Amino acid sequence: MSRLQAEHLYKVFGRRPEDAVGKLEGGASREDLRTEGTTAAVIDASIEVDEGQIFVVMGLSGSGKSTLLRMLNGLLEPTAGTVRIDGQDLTSLSDKDLRKVRSEKISMVFQHFALFPHRSVLENAAYGLEVQGIPRAERNKRATEALELTGLKGWEKSWPDELSGGMQQRVGLARALATNADLLLMDESFSALDPLIRRDMQDQLLELQKTLKKTIVFITHDLNEAMRLGDKIAVMRDGRIVQIGSAEDILVRPATDYVASFIQDVDRTRVLTAGAVMDEVGTVLGTTTPDGKELSTAAEFRAAAPAVVGIDTPLAELFTPCSASTVPVAVTDEQGTLVGAVPVARLLAVLGEPAAQDQAPDVPVQATAAKGKVIAGA
């Protein structure tokens, strides 16, 4: 079920923005408008974010990703287009109703922590609840629970300047979680952290998501972060969304030359997983071994396979077993049930050089409930 929908969003700054939208719809470029003193920050952007999904918007500086985020929570009014949360059109609300939606349904986690230096860790975590008018006892209880979730139990009475950068960002995350908002918006939330702490925060978010199943829009300029966190990823360039898909879609089938160049340095063997590229179980049963034996059952296939791996096993770990046998490597889900297999031909094809859409190899990426996730370390 879709929790958030944005349709044909435009944000234009400068003179006669509505006229500029008409020109863009008529084929004018961002550069054409810039010569007229007008800046098109977001151009015809549409996204749909499902409940419980981490939707990552990725792009370089100036691509329009942060402007898009600010339209999603109503901080910026779109020049054209609509934003809906649970079917409610934010662009049609009064200022009072919009503030109510923002305080109750949307939480933000910022890049630079945005903590109040004169408030304790607990008071910072409870701030959103204070804005909502929640009684002190209740907001302290919920803030304490959120701090515990983010690994800050025992730090409630500390001051922000007593915390490391990573801990301060955990307070910001706890503040967002304490409100129990349906939608969590994260704007470059981890980019100010050093690499080790950043990875730790990514781990924290993914672990929390297993339990809380929040609907999250995460903004980043870091490709590896996008690949690690995103259930779905939108790539932006010059105000436009140029591709939306899973990490596997973008790595295997980049839609444009720009996307292909963007991902060319990614180590695909450590990003793609067995579950992302496997043949489904229905297509591998019936495989014949070199001695002519037909593997017609899951038990027979597993016994003959050179290795049995989980759906989240990185492709880098499949080369040795794939090279040792003509039988594909067996892939199982978290319950140990056979869900597919990776033959050596599929492994080599997926690892071929990424190409633009009109040149992409015909290598389908499986879209099953058992599909593997991308992992860290790209």
Rank of each mutant, 00 (worst) to 15 (best):
L98K: 00
E148I: 12
K141P: 05
R175D: 13
A299F: 07
G165S: 14
T313G: 11
A226F: 15
G239R: 01
R270W: 12
G128K: 03
L115T: 01
V12F: 04
G377V: 05
L4V: 14
A80V: 03
T82C: 10
L152A: 00
I54L: 09
L163P: 06
V131T: 09
R228D: 05
N124C: 02
L185N: 01
A370V: 10
M278H: 14
G59N: 12
D200F: 03
P314Y: 02
L24E: 09
T82G: 04
E148G: 14
L115D: 08
L184C: 01
L223P: 01
Q209G: 08
A20Y: 09
H8C: 00
V57Q: 09
L90F: 12
A260G: 04
G372V: 11
E36M: 10
R253I: 04
V217A: 02
T337C: 11
G62R: 14
R102I: 12
V242C: 02
K293S: 15
T67S: 08
T283Q: 11
P364D: 07
K373T: 06
F13S: 01
V121N: 08
Q132S: 09
V217P: 05
P321M: 08
V57W: 12
P328A: 03
V131M: 11
Q209C: 04
V242W: 07
V235H: 00
K373D: 12
G81S: 07
L272M: 03
I244K: 07
I311G: 00
E188D: 03
L318P: 15
L173Y: 07
S63N: 12
L152P: 03
D187C: 12
D203T: 12
S296R: 13
S189C: 13
E334Q: 15
S46R: 01
A341V: 14
L90R: 00
K214V: 07
L223V: 15
T150Y: 15
G81M: 12
L149T: 13
A255E: 04
L193I: 15
L24D: 06
S120P: 10
A349N: 06
K371H: 12
P254C: 09
V350A: 10
G62K: 11
D50V: 14
E280L: 08
